[in-house]
Design a protein around this nucleic acid. Structure first.
Lengths: 218, 218
DNA sequence: GTAACCAGAATTGGTGCCAATTTACGATAA
DNA sequence: TTATCGTAAATTGGCACCAATTCTGGTTAC
């Protein structure tokens, strides 16, 4: 594995854009552009994202607080290497939270919400074929965010988004298999179906399957 | 409300101690020493905790990431003022999570764990009478941490600890009423009882009541 | 008397530099 | 030839200074 970050990906230069460095770095970690274990040298990040040293430091500190990168004092930062147990634990938390509010999602669902979710699910389908890995990832995020919003608890949406960011680095690589992507796309539509039919047990079952990335048994 | 932080509390000077500034500031916010809305001027914090400017800035940035302090660009940081809706939403999340793993807690419970929990519950009782507000707060934290540990999901323990920190500033002030404190202490013991009896519905009921700080109906 | 405006003070936030620690490399000795 | 030690390079992390923005108080105009 190469230690030099600059050669791994040259981000397209957009002079007018002024995004936060933390988000850029986060994205590159989540999409697997910076694989687990990579050393994040401050000098490299500075050049890579065309930003200053303090910005790099703040980004690294923030991501190490979220346990996405590991901080070795006086040695440096590296992308966190997550073990299977933590992955399973985080999935468990997500299952508990998201199935736990399934009843509220059904209670609050409206035809307009159904239409919006169908649109987002289709957008995910689209991105599966034609989009980049980032657009694909974002489309998935948008769908799940909209779905959770139905529970009427905006704090929950944030918490889940935060938790999800702790474990996607591994699954995102699994996404490279076309079969898994298409299965996810199907599951999205099935979840909307269950919502529309107000079928609580089925919705819960789908959510759990979807989070655990288990083979679907329809 | 005074704007000058230095006059609010003089922390005892311990020269040999070298704790993290973030923790110190966090503690002062959670215990209500720095009430909601207080402006956290960097120069004041620098003097208050006897640390450097970068340390203060890192602490403020970290706590603003956790949404414990609000960052107004070019204006400053202030202790977050949380509204009732957010408090309710956060409580909902905690109820879902902690009742969601109640079955696992019962499944994993051992006599040794029961003994440990009883000890921690008694320690909380003790601190209610003789401890400072901080010791009291820490005793409560220790009990709930040990309780959650039974679920066998260490990631969950961290997540709950994190989201708990988003809402305690208000309840901590409610703790000043002796009645509420004694009720909390009783609930701790009742939860251990339910655990020992392996009574799942009762345990769930107690957890929900305890989190929502509702009047107990035994 | 009140409102708008302008100057001075204070605070935030960014930039650059330097010390401390660690790593890598090469020389020396067994 | 190999292991060990020592020096040099590189990286991290802290510190001090300075620019930019905002707030405060007083003055002027209406």
């Amino acid at each position: 594995m190469s230690d030099d970050l600059t050669e791994m990906l040259a981000p397209e230069e957009k002079p007018e854009e002024k995004k936060d460095v933390t988000d850029l770095l986060l994205h590159d970690i989540l999409t697997g552009t910076l694989p687990a274990g990579t050393w994040l040298k401050q000098i490299d990040l500075e050049r890579r994202y065309d930003c200053t040293r303090p910005e790099v430091r703040r980004a690294l500190d923030r991501l190490s607080q979220r346990r996405l990168v590991q901080h070795n004092p006086n040695r440096g930062y590296q992308v966190y290497e997550l073990d299977d147990q933590r992955t399973r634990e985080i999935s468990d938390i997500r299952v508990i939270l998201e199935t736990g509010v399934a009843d509220r999602m059904i209670a609050n669902v409206t035809p307009a919400a159904i239409a919006e979710l169908r649109g987002l699910a289709r957008h995910f389908d689209e991105m599966s074929f034609r989009g980049s890995i980032m657009e694909h990832y974002d489309a998935n995020l948008a769908f799940h965010r909209a779905l959770l919003m139905l529970a009427g608890n905006s704090e929950l949406v944030e918490v889940v988004a935060e938790i999800r960011q702790r474990t996607v680095s591994a699954p995102v690589s699994q996404w490279r298999t076309r079969a898994r992507i298409e299965q996810s796309a199907r599951e999205h539509h099935l979840m909307v179906d269950a919502l529309e039919a107000r079928d609580l047990p089925e919705l819960k079952r789908l959510i759990e399957i979807h989070i655990r990335q288990a083979p679907i048994k329809a």
